[in-house]
Design a protein around this nucleic acid. Structure first.
Lengths: 188, 188
DNA sequence: TTGACAGGTGAACGAACGTTCACCTATACT
DNA sequence: AGTATAGGTGAACGTTCGTTCACCTGTCAA
């Protein structure tokens, strides 16, 4: 069983947004018998490449197709031989925990610049989550929305920017923490 | 047709990693006839919530489940009423173009700190892509891998760090551009 | 009061589904 | 020479699939 066959199945999945049936795998691989497809699938299931439903239907191991994860930047790219060993990961599962409570916000302003969050970036925030000290939060202070570090200075909640230009904010009367920033995504 | 029904179908999709059959939708909704499910699906298809295969099979509109996209940080969170109007996006489709050529690398070192890329971040890189001036690239210079800005100074390729601590590199003999950085992902 | 219409029921259809069994090669290893 | 073993063929099975048709409510407008 080659990785090429797995690739064909996953290409089908990406195109049709569902896994192929056995007849379709048969055509995909050029087999003349459904049974060949059936056996192929079974060995793939044994290897953990794909899975089967309780009703026997073929399903992918993850909803999202994985991306290969290499080591660090300094380690660079492995040789094609080692590449097979490389780990894989799905971005979606990695970033999103509670989908219903998760939102994307576009960053405007440079108040979190020194934290590596730049104007134009997208922040992935989770609503209704209790902020811990040091978390980056989306807050409404005096009818204004901002993104700041959530800190406590002798028991008093303080919102601190990651940019010396902006002074810390100690909310006077009202402070609403709307969401906690869970991830930052920047696309070039 | 309520959004709750759509939610049930998508919850099924997330759990079983495939769309339900009509009989399954029937049970899911508490219908007593497959036909009710059939009609429900048809109106959902008309509204563009889900799609049908050429063979009549039900497939989701996207492979990945979408996340709601709000406006900017400053705009804050809309009221629940407006929320329905909010746009949605799938992270996977947004970030990944050519899946086979896409890799994730962990960032080590602070050479791109001022570009908002910090140690521990993940960079999503695409292999075999021609770098343009200003792109961030993963390069091998004199047997060392680094992440730098790809620049041209009077026709001469130069690798510039986004951190004044590090001087620009003008490759002497060998320079291999392995990949171009397409996105940065940071998780807290 | 009538009629349209959206939504649900129930039964039926052929086609396609996943699965099984028996058989057929090749190649590789005693 | 013999025999496992991996991979492909071909036909058959009961089940479930998507789809259709006829019928049955309600609700709301004319």
């Amino acid at each position: 069983m080659s990785t090429k066959q797995y690739g064909k199945i996953m290409a089908f999945y990406e195109q049709h947004r569902r896994m192929p049936t056995y007849s379709e795998i048969m055509r995909l691989m050029g087999f003349k018998s459904k049974n060949s497809a059936y056996k192929l699938v079974n060995t793939m299931v044994e290897k953990g490449l794909i899975q089967k439903d309780t009703s026997g239907k073929i399903v992918p191991r993850q909803l999202t197709l994985p991306v290969r994860v290499l080591g660090t930047v300094e380690a660079g790219f492995p040789s094609p031989a080692e590449e097979e060993l490389s780990d894989t990961m799905t971005l979606d599962e990695y970033l999103i925990e509670k989908r219903e409570a998760t939102f994307l916000l576009k960053v405007s302003g440079d108040s979190m610049f020194d934290a590596g969050i730049m104007p134009g970036d997208l922040v992935l925030v989770e609503r209704g989550k209790d902020p811990k000290a040091g978390d980056i939060v989306i807050a409404e202070v005096d009818h204004e929305w901002t993104m700041k570090y959530f800190q406590k200075v002798n028991g008093q909640v303080t919102l601190v920017a990651a940019n010396k230009k902006y002074p810390p904010i100690v909310p006077k009367d009202e402070l609403k923490i709307a969401a906690v920033v869970k991830a930052v995504v920047r696309k070039y």
